[in-house]
Design a protein around this nucleic acid. Structure first.
Length: 560
RNA sequence: GGACCUGUAGCCUAGCCUGGAUAAGGCGACAGCCUUCUAAGCUGUAAAUCCGGGGUUCGAAUCCCCGCAGGUCCA
């Protein structure tokens, strides 16, 4: 579509005298397809030429001759509207997709490497849906990066040595526990500490022993953390979300690297020892919204704090991420991340690109693992799966072999519900909406895909026969073709701006466009030439729907 | 007290970066469409002070300023 925009800008530029680049920026898309495929508003020229914009439009219309893919030019009031040749457009987009198939829309980058860190939940319990927003966005981003050609590695930073985890270790004692028990233990120990603040001392004692390298305590921490990480990873694996590396914060605890970082920062002359004896970095001049813009690096005993360890971790990530270095963080980490970013810049390093998302709330208030006021991801998965099983049963699908299909549909709906919303928006979790399989949902998109598969299964695509694309003139057909043509632009933006919801929204529009086509334009019952052209068209739709769903981490079942 | 994000029909959302034609979808409601490729679908109707107020502009949901409300963080 961008090429056509450029071509039209060229035509306008030649006749109006404005530079082609300026003209390109002015080319717009009319609100209604009936008005044209592109338009050039003449208001700006009107000011310059001191002439009525409608006159300018009609003047330009007379001078610009349609050529190539531009079929018709119409002045409509102050707008100059351009109509593309639908048959040529369909032919161009169909042959491009037929050639590139599952790579259609890919930037096909070569020798690029990307790193993305996401999820990175405190390993203290089963994750709630708010945490899952991180994983789902991050997973989709990693898929988008790979699609465009980045060799991409996915990292999970395990905060295995904080106070939260120490509390859990303390609470667990020597009990033999399973993953599912951890949440209860976590809630229990939080309540106990609230009642009896004296216990906190013991928690810190435990943490101190860990940091001092007490082998027995280390083993206790490791046992709880592993239980948790394995449980979480299994849950995410069930959703098709995988990690290449689990990076443990404890690795940076005794690491010389934190000392190197500290030394390097001291070289900037910005490190000072504060009233409490801690090493603190002065971050004045970075526009941080803090009364005293600093970053605390160590405790009074000069042992590292989380921030310093995170900096060392960032150095590791930077050394591995050649071209894109991405981290997905909750909005609560915005300021903290700006501190990291500023500090890295003092070291002459480029911080990761951060994708921040807002929290998922409950109608009853904020979600909190500590208070137990939450919807667990597990629970959401379970409900989605059960609903999918029910829906399949109501359609007479056998219960025995339908489990993978139910997962594809249920988990698809779950992921889509989370990812379709812009990440900066708060979401109030609502079961009815979250479990909807109608309208703007994954099952709707999957259903369109399954319908295409069903038609293709019943048809035989003729081999290497010339297709008469001019037959694809119905508005449902041209609508589909231009929807297909829009995809590469969307795929590019989703990657450059790190916004997967663009893919989700687009996939719905494409499926919607197909469903309208499906009802208006029969395929198999048509005579050969038209059937062939329509088969080519829907095969392309199938490819693009599959691409979109795979970029969202959602499966594309062939029937449902 | 300060900073950032969000505010669009009863409910949920897209559009905002990059200003342009009657503000686009979904859920819910109402009225239709299955002897025809899967009705998880399609068609139509009703429903909006685009949070409020200023400003910039030929033109503002979109840009700027001042408020209000929710979320987040800092102190």
């Amino acid at each position: 579509m961008n090429d056509y925009r450029k071509a039209i800008a060229g035509l306008v530029a030649r006749e109006s005298g404005i530079p082609a680049e300026t003209a390109e920026g002015m080319i717009a898309v009319p609100p209604d397809k009936e008005l044209g495929d592109f338009s050039f508003p003449c208001f700006a020229l009107s000011k310059e030429m001191k002439k009525n914009p409608a006159e300018i439009a009609s003047g330009l219309q007379q001078r610009i001759k349609p050529s190539g893919i531009v079929e018709k030019i119409v002045a409509n009031g102050p707008y100059l509207n351009f109509f593309l040749n639908k048959a040529m457009l369909a032919e161009a987009v169909i042959s491009e997709i037929s050639a590139s198939k599952e790579k259609y829309g890919s930037l096909n980058l070569k020798n690029r490497k990307a790193l993305i860190e996401h999820t990175s939940i405190n390993p203290n319990a089963s994750p709630h849906v708010g945490r899952a927003r991180n994983a789902i966005i991050g997973d989709s981003l990693s898929r988008i990066l790979r699609f465009h050609g980045y060799r991409t590695e996915v990292h999970y930073f395990v905060n295995d040595i904080g106070k939260q985890i120490a509390m859990l270790v303390f609470g667990c004692g020597s009990k033999r526990l399973e993953f599912k028990d951890l949440l209860d233990e976590y809630v229990k120990i939080n309540a106990e500490l609230e009642k009896n603040p004296e216990l906190e001392k013991k928690v810190f004692e435990l943490l101190k022993k860990l940091e001092d390298g007490d082998k027995q305590v280390i083993a206790r921490f490791r046992r709880v953390v592993e239980l948790c990480i394995i449980g979480q990873a299994k849950l995410f694996e069930e959703l098709g979300i995988r990690y290449d590396f689990f990076d443990y914060e404890s690795k940076y605890l005794w690491d010389k690297k934190t000392e190197d970082v500290l030394r390097q920062l001291q070289g900037t002359g910005r490190v000072f020892v504060d009233a409490d004896g801690r090493n603190v970095l002065n971050l004045e001049g970075f526009g941080l919204a803090m009364e005293i813009p600093v970053f605390v690096l160590t405790r009074a005993d000069k042992t590292s704090l989380y921030g310093l360890r995170d900096l060392a971790y960032n150095l590791d990530k930077i050394s591995r991420a050649k071209d894109r270095n991405i981290v997905v963080l909750g909005e609560d980490h915005k300021l903290y991340f700006r501190q990291i970013e500023s500090t890295l810049s003092l070291m002459g390093l480029k911080a990761p690109e951060a994708v921040h998302y807002s929290f998922i709330l409950l109608a009853s208030g904020k979600m909190s693992t500590r208070s137990g006021n939450l919807v667990l991801l597990e629970e959401f998965m379970q409900q989605a799966l059960e609903k999918a099983v029910r829906e399949l049963a109501s359609r007479g699908k056998s219960m025995k072999n339908s489990r993978p299909l139910a997962k594809a549909i249920g988990y698809g709906a779950l992921k889509y519900h989370i990812i379709k919303v812009s990440p900066e928006k708060n979401v109030v979790f609502d079961w009815e909406q979250a479990l909807s399989f109608d309208g703007e949902s994954a099952p709707y998109i999957q259903y369109a895909h399954a319908r295409i598969c069903s038609i293709l299964k019943k048809a035989s695509l003729p081999k290497s026969k010339k297709t008469n694309f001019s037959l694809l003139g119905a508005k449902e057909e041209t609508g589909l073709a231009s929807a297909l043509a829009n995809f590469p632009e969307i795929a590019e933006r989703a990657c450059s701006q790190l916004r997967p919801h663009l893919i989700a929204n687009y996939a719905y529009l494409l499926a919607d466009s197909f469903n309208r086509f499906y009802h208006a334009c029969p395929v198999l019952s048509e005579e050969k030439e038209l059937m062939n052209a329509r088969l080519q068209l829907i095969l392309c739709v199938k490819y693009v729907l599959e691409i979109c769903l795979s970029l969202l981490g959602i499966e594309s079942p062939e029937s449902m």
